[in-house]
Protein backbone atom coordinates (compact mmCIF):
# COMPACT_ATOMS: atom_id res chain seq x y z
CA UNK A 1 0.00 0.00 0.00
CA UNK A 2 1.49 3.32 -1.02
CA UNK A 3 1.39 6.20 1.46
CA UNK A 4 -0.98 8.05 -0.86
CA UNK A 5 -3.59 5.30 -0.84
CA UNK A 6 -3.15 4.91 2.88
CA UNK A 7 -3.83 8.59 3.41
CA UNK A 8 -6.98 8.50 1.29
CA UNK A 9 -8.21 5.51 3.23
CA UNK A 10 -7.53 7.22 6.53
CA UNK A 11 -9.13 10.42 5.32
CA UNK A 12 -12.38 8.80 4.21
CA UNK A 13 -12.53 6.79 7.44
CA UNK A 14 -12.15 9.98 9.44
CA UNK A 15 -14.68 11.84 7.29
CA UNK A 16 -17.25 9.07 7.79
CA UNK A 17 -16.86 9.34 11.55
CA UNK A 18 -17.23 13.08 11.33
CA UNK A 19 -20.32 12.93 9.11
CA UNK A 20 -22.02 10.37 11.35
CA UNK A 21 -21.29 12.36 14.47
CA UNK A 22 -22.73 15.50 12.88
CA UNK A 23 -26.17 13.98 12.39
CA UNK A 24 -26.47 11.97 15.59
CA UNK A 25 -27.41 14.26 18.50
CA UNK A 26 -26.94 11.43 21.04
CA UNK A 27 -23.55 10.35 19.70
CA UNK A 28 -20.08 11.25 20.91
CA UNK A 29 -17.95 13.80 19.04
CA UNK A 30 -15.72 12.23 16.38
CA UNK A 31 -12.35 10.87 17.48
CA UNK A 32 -9.59 13.44 17.37
CA UNK A 33 -11.72 16.39 18.44
CA UNK A 34 -9.77 17.87 21.33
CA UNK A 35 -9.45 21.18 23.12
CA UNK A 36 -6.55 23.38 24.00
CA UNK A 37 -8.53 25.41 26.51
CA UNK A 38 -12.05 26.44 27.37
CA UNK A 39 -15.29 24.54 26.87
CA UNK A 40 -15.29 20.76 26.62
CA UNK A 41 -15.03 19.42 23.04
CA UNK A 42 -18.38 17.65 23.14
CA UNK A 43 -20.16 20.90 23.95
CA UNK A 44 -18.28 22.75 21.23
CA UNK A 45 -19.05 20.03 18.74
CA UNK A 46 -22.74 20.22 19.75
CA UNK A 47 -22.81 23.85 18.57
CA UNK A 48 -21.49 22.79 15.18
CA UNK A 49 -23.93 19.89 15.03
CA UNK A 50 -26.82 22.20 15.85
CA UNK A 51 -25.82 24.64 13.11
CA UNK A 52 -25.87 21.83 10.55
CA UNK A 53 -29.31 20.67 11.66
CA UNK A 54 -30.74 24.19 11.77
CA UNK A 55 -29.49 24.97 8.26
CA UNK A 56 -30.91 21.72 6.85
CA UNK A 57 -34.31 22.10 8.52
CA UNK A 58 -34.26 25.76 7.46
CA UNK A 59 -33.73 24.71 3.85
CA UNK A 60 -36.72 22.35 4.12
CA UNK A 61 -38.88 25.06 5.68
CA UNK A 62 -37.94 27.40 2.82
CA UNK A 63 -38.84 24.80 0.22
CA UNK A 64 -42.03 23.44 1.86
CA UNK A 65 -43.80 26.46 3.40
CA UNK A 66 -47.33 25.17 2.73
CA UNK A 67 -46.55 21.81 4.35
CA UNK A 68 -45.18 23.70 7.33
CA UNK A 69 -48.30 25.84 7.54
CA UNK A 70 -50.58 22.81 7.40
CA UNK A 71 -48.89 20.87 10.22
CA UNK A 72 -47.52 23.77 12.29
CA UNK A 73 -43.99 24.70 13.32
CA UNK A 74 -43.52 22.04 15.98
CA UNK A 75 -44.59 19.07 13.86
CA UNK A 76 -42.69 20.34 10.85
CA UNK A 77 -39.52 20.86 12.82
CA UNK A 78 -39.55 17.36 14.27
CA UNK A 79 -40.35 15.80 10.87
CA UNK A 80 -37.62 17.88 9.22
CA UNK A 81 -35.07 16.84 11.87
CA UNK A 82 -36.01 13.18 11.49
CA UNK A 83 -35.61 13.51 7.72
CA UNK A 84 -32.33 15.45 7.86
CA UNK A 85 -30.70 12.99 10.27
CA UNK A 86 -31.36 10.15 7.79
CA UNK A 87 -30.86 12.13 4.56
CA UNK A 88 -27.72 14.27 4.61
CA UNK A 89 -27.42 16.57 1.58
CA UNK A 90 -25.58 15.12 -1.41
CA UNK A 91 -25.11 18.52 -3.03
CA UNK A 92 -23.96 21.88 -1.66
CA UNK A 93 -26.94 23.49 -3.48
CA UNK A 94 -29.49 23.78 -0.70
CA UNK A 95 -32.27 24.66 -3.14
CA UNK A 96 -32.23 21.03 -4.29
CA UNK A 97 -32.31 19.64 -0.75
CA UNK A 98 -35.39 17.65 0.20
CA UNK A 99 -36.15 15.82 -3.07
CA UNK A 100 -37.05 12.74 -0.96
CA UNK A 101 -38.97 14.70 1.68
CA UNK A 102 -42.42 14.09 0.06
CA UNK A 103 -41.87 10.31 0.07
CA UNK A 104 -40.59 10.54 3.63
CA UNK A 105 -43.83 12.29 4.64
CA UNK A 106 -45.89 9.64 2.84
CA UNK A 107 -44.26 6.96 5.04
CA UNK A 108 -44.52 9.01 8.23
CA UNK A 109 -47.04 7.39 10.63
CA UNK A 110 -47.50 10.63 12.51
CA UNK A 111 -48.74 12.31 9.32
CA UNK A 112 -51.44 9.71 8.58
CA UNK A 113 -54.13 12.11 9.82
CA UNK A 114 -53.24 14.42 6.91
CA UNK A 115 -53.03 11.96 4.02
CA UNK A 116 -52.82 14.77 1.44
CA UNK A 117 -49.65 16.20 3.01
CA UNK A 118 -47.23 14.20 0.84
CA UNK A 119 -48.92 15.42 -2.35
CA UNK A 120 -48.75 19.04 -1.18
CA UNK A 121 -45.01 18.44 -0.60
CA UNK A 122 -44.70 16.95 -4.11
CA UNK A 123 -46.31 20.08 -5.53
CA UNK A 124 -43.94 22.34 -3.58
CA UNK A 125 -40.89 20.30 -4.62
CA UNK A 126 -41.99 20.57 -8.26
CA UNK A 127 -42.31 24.36 -7.88
CA UNK A 128 -38.66 24.67 -6.82
CA UNK A 129 -37.53 22.42 -9.67
CA UNK A 130 -39.56 24.54 -12.10
CA UNK A 131 -37.99 27.69 -10.68
CA UNK A 132 -34.49 26.41 -11.38
CA UNK A 133 -35.28 24.58 -14.63
CA UNK A 134 -33.72 25.72 -17.90
CA UNK A 135 -35.20 28.71 -19.64
CA UNK A 136 -36.80 27.91 -23.00
CA UNK A 137 -38.67 30.02 -25.51
CA UNK A 138 -42.27 28.77 -25.78
CA UNK A 139 -43.64 27.51 -29.08
CA UNK A 140 -45.99 30.03 -30.66
CA UNK A 141 -49.10 29.35 -32.67
CA UNK A 142 -47.32 30.78 -35.74
CA UNK A 143 -44.72 27.96 -35.52
CA UNK A 144 -47.47 25.48 -36.37
CA UNK A 145 -49.13 27.48 -39.11
CA UNK A 146 -47.21 25.59 -41.81
CA UNK A 147 -47.88 22.04 -40.57
CA UNK A 148 -49.89 20.05 -43.11
CA UNK A 149 -53.17 18.43 -42.19
CA UNK A 150 -51.80 14.92 -42.89
CA UNK A 151 -48.96 15.23 -40.39
CA UNK A 152 -51.03 16.74 -37.57
CA UNK A 153 -52.00 13.40 -36.05
CA UNK A 154 -48.35 12.37 -35.80
CA UNK A 155 -47.17 15.63 -34.29
CA UNK A 156 -45.20 15.20 -31.07
CA UNK A 157 -44.70 18.15 -28.74
CA UNK A 158 -41.69 18.89 -26.59
CA UNK A 159 -43.11 20.40 -23.42
CA UNK A 160 -41.39 23.13 -21.44
CA UNK A 161 -38.47 21.79 -19.34
CA UNK A 162 -40.02 23.29 -16.20
CA UNK A 163 -43.39 21.59 -16.73
CA UNK A 164 -44.48 18.94 -14.24
CA UNK A 165 -47.82 17.35 -13.38
CA UNK A 166 -48.61 16.23 -9.85
CA UNK A 167 -51.66 13.97 -9.86
CA UNK A 168 -53.39 13.51 -6.53
CA UNK A 169 -56.47 11.72 -5.21
CA UNK A 170 -56.95 14.82 -3.03
CA UNK A 171 -57.76 18.42 -4.06
CA UNK A 172 -54.03 19.17 -3.87
CA UNK A 173 -54.06 22.46 -5.77
CA UNK A 174 -56.87 23.89 -3.62
CA UNK A 175 -55.16 22.77 -0.40
CA UNK A 176 -51.80 24.17 -1.52
CA UNK A 177 -53.31 27.49 -2.68
CA UNK A 178 -55.11 27.95 0.63
CA UNK A 179 -51.90 27.41 2.55
CA UNK A 180 -49.70 29.43 0.20
CA UNK A 181 -51.89 32.52 0.58
CA UNK A 182 -53.33 32.33 -2.97
CA UNK A 183 -56.81 31.40 -1.76
CA UNK A 184 -58.77 32.23 1.39
CA UNK A 185 -58.71 29.44 3.95
CA UNK A 186 -62.14 27.86 3.82
CA UNK A 187 -63.78 24.52 4.33
CA UNK A 188 -63.27 22.25 1.32
CA UNK A 189 -66.54 20.65 0.32
CA UNK A 190 -65.44 18.97 -2.91
CA UNK A 191 -62.80 16.38 -2.12
CA UNK A 192 -62.36 15.09 -5.69
CA UNK A 193 -58.78 14.55 -6.74
CA UNK A 194 -56.92 17.28 -8.63
CA UNK A 195 -53.88 17.32 -10.86
CA UNK A 196 -51.49 20.21 -10.42
CA UNK A 197 -49.79 21.68 -13.46
CA UNK A 198 -46.53 23.40 -12.52
CA UNK A 199 -44.73 25.41 -15.18
CA UNK A 200 -42.44 28.42 -15.52
CA UNK A 201 -42.88 29.68 -19.10
CA UNK A 202 -41.17 33.01 -18.31
CA UNK A 203 -39.96 34.21 -14.92
CA UNK A 204 -42.79 33.20 -12.60
CA UNK A 205 -43.64 29.67 -11.52
CA UNK A 206 -47.32 29.06 -12.17
CA UNK A 207 -49.49 26.44 -10.51
CA UNK A 208 -52.69 25.59 -12.34
CA UNK A 209 -55.51 23.11 -11.98
CA UNK A 210 -56.33 21.66 -15.40
CA UNK A 211 -59.65 19.77 -15.61
CA UNK A 212 -59.34 15.95 -15.91
CA UNK A 213 -59.38 15.87 -19.74
CA UNK A 214 -56.72 18.58 -20.02
CA UNK A 215 -54.57 16.84 -17.41
CA UNK A 216 -54.76 13.57 -19.37
CA UNK A 217 -53.94 15.45 -22.60
CA UNK A 218 -50.83 17.05 -21.08
CA UNK A 219 -49.72 13.81 -19.41
CA UNK A 220 -49.99 12.04 -22.76
CA UNK A 221 -48.07 14.77 -24.60
CA UNK A 222 -45.45 14.78 -21.82
CA UNK A 223 -45.04 11.02 -22.31
CA UNK A 224 -44.15 11.72 -25.95
CA UNK A 225 -47.42 10.49 -27.46
CA UNK A 226 -48.63 11.79 -30.82
CA UNK A 227 -51.13 14.64 -30.85
CA UNK A 228 -53.88 12.38 -32.20
CA UNK A 229 -53.33 9.81 -29.45
CA UNK A 230 -53.12 12.46 -26.76
CA UNK A 231 -56.42 13.95 -27.91
CA UNK A 232 -58.01 10.48 -27.85
CA UNK A 233 -56.66 9.83 -24.35
CA UNK A 234 -58.11 13.15 -23.16
CA UNK A 235 -61.51 12.39 -24.69
CA UNK A 236 -61.49 8.96 -23.06
CA UNK A 237 -60.90 10.67 -19.70
CA UNK A 238 -63.55 13.33 -20.19
CA UNK A 239 -66.16 13.70 -22.92
CA UNK A 240 -66.14 17.48 -22.30
CA UNK A 241 -62.54 17.80 -23.49
CA UNK A 242 -62.25 20.66 -25.99
CA UNK A 243 -59.19 20.17 -28.19
CA UNK A 244 -59.20 23.68 -29.67
CA UNK A 245 -59.27 25.37 -26.25
CA UNK A 246 -56.51 23.08 -24.97
CA UNK A 247 -54.30 23.65 -28.00
CA UNK A 248 -54.78 27.40 -27.52
CA UNK A 249 -53.83 27.01 -23.84
CA UNK A 250 -50.72 25.07 -24.91
CA UNK A 251 -49.55 28.11 -26.91
CA UNK A 252 -50.77 31.00 -24.80
CA UNK A 253 -49.60 29.28 -21.60
CA UNK A 254 -46.12 28.68 -22.99
CA UNK A 255 -46.40 24.96 -22.18
CA UNK A 256 -44.67 23.61 -25.29
CA UNK A 257 -41.31 24.58 -26.77
CA UNK A 258 -41.13 22.47 -29.92
CA UNK A 259 -43.15 20.17 -32.15
CA UNK A 260 -42.17 17.71 -34.85
CA UNK A 261 -44.05 15.07 -36.83
CA UNK A 262 -42.62 11.58 -36.46
CA UNK A 263 -44.40 8.38 -37.35
CA UNK A 264 -42.08 6.10 -35.42
CA UNK A 265 -42.32 5.64 -31.71
CA UNK A 266 -39.49 7.33 -29.85
CA UNK A 267 -36.58 5.10 -28.67
Amino acid sequence: MTPHVFQNHWQSHWQNHWAQALLDPAGAPPPGVARQAGTAPDRRFAVYRNNVMVSLTGALAARFPAVKRIVGDEFFDSAARAFASKNPPRSPLMMTYGEEFPDFIARLDAASAVPYLADVARLEAARTRAYHADDAAPLTAADLAGVSQETLFDLRFVLHPSLELVASRFPVVTIWAMNAGDLELAEITDWSGETALIVRPALDVEVRRPPPGAAAFLASLAAGDRLGDAAAAALAQSADFDLAVNLAALFSGGLAIDAAAAKDDPQ
Partner: peptide
Protein backbone atom coordinates in the same frame (compact mmCIF):
# COMPACT_ATOMS: atom_id res chain seq x y z
CA UNK B 1 -59.08 6.13 -31.73
CA UNK B 2 -58.03 7.05 -35.23
CA UNK B 3 -61.64 6.96 -36.35
CA UNK B 4 -62.64 9.35 -33.55
CA UNK B 5 -59.77 11.78 -33.99
CA UNK B 6 -59.39 12.45 -37.69
CA UNK B 7 -56.90 14.70 -39.41
CA UNK B 8 -59.80 17.03 -40.21
CA UNK B 9 -60.82 17.19 -36.54
CA UNK B 10 -57.26 18.08 -35.60
CA UNK B 11 -56.91 20.65 -38.35
CA UNK B 12 -60.20 22.28 -37.34
CA UNK B 13 -59.18 22.37 -33.69
CA UNK B 14 -55.78 23.83 -34.54
CA UNK B 15 -57.34 26.54 -36.71
CA UNK B 16 -59.74 27.47 -33.89
CA UNK B 17 -56.82 27.43 -31.43
CA UNK B 18 -54.80 29.83 -33.58
CA UNK B 19 -57.77 32.21 -33.62
CA UNK B 20 -58.18 31.95 -29.85
CA UNK B 21 -54.48 32.65 -29.25
CA UNK B 22 -54.34 35.69 -31.52
CA UNK B 23 -57.54 37.00 -29.92
CA UNK B 24 -56.08 36.73 -26.41
CA UNK B 25 -52.84 38.38 -27.55
Amino acid sequence: TKTEITAATLAGALATALTLVSASA
